[in-house]
Amino acid sequence: MDVNRHYFENLNEIRSIMEKSSRFISLSGMSGVMAGIYALAGAYAVYWYNHMHTIEYAIQSLPDFFSSVSFYRFYLVIGFTVLFLSILTGIFLTVKRAKRKHQTVWDQVALRMIINLSIPLLAGAGFVVVLLHHNYFELIAPTLLVFYGLGLVNGSKYTLNDIRLLGILEIITGLLCGISSISGLYFMAFGFGVLHIVYGLYMWLKYEHNEPIIE
């Protein structure tokens, strides 16, 4: 009986070490929450900007505001600011968490995760450029959501498995956005904002909430 248990524990330990050594597990759930907040703030800024300018254009009966260049420039600046702040916060919180747990952050596993996450993301970014080239502006929001979801699904093989479901939810949000008549802005606010906040909190409660501090 004891021998049986010994071998069973052996196998369990092997499985756990294989899992731990091949997955990037330091990612902090709070970085998801913060990314979600930035995204919601960005979405609100765009909403406000659209609102103000639509009124202004209507009053002055200027040509269609949505075809103006400054409109897209504002979108781009907001988009990149949200992306940049999210990445920066993510790195900061993850490094902090890894240090607290005395883990190394930057290793081959982290690199593998980032590469696998990035391939669909870069493909998506490239595809958005193609859409811009053909003036298919209404397809940009669904494309961003779907490719981001694909990136998460692909990267999830090298990090916590929960990320996979988030990826699938992003893909569904993107597809719904594509067939809906509601503005893509609301879907982006949901996919990049609400989903990140809910998921980040869930991950934080599941893994970090009562994480022991190793001295």
Partner: peptide
């Protein structure tokens, strides 16, 4: 031995692994 079992487990699913990583995992 536990260390050998652990080291082999790590190496089975990773390419070259650094000493510090092994130390941390085991």
């Amino acid at each position: 031995n536990r260390i050998r079992l652990g080291l082999m487990s790590i190496l089975m699913v990773n390419d070259w692994v650094e000493f510090n990583k092994v130390k941390e995992l085991l």
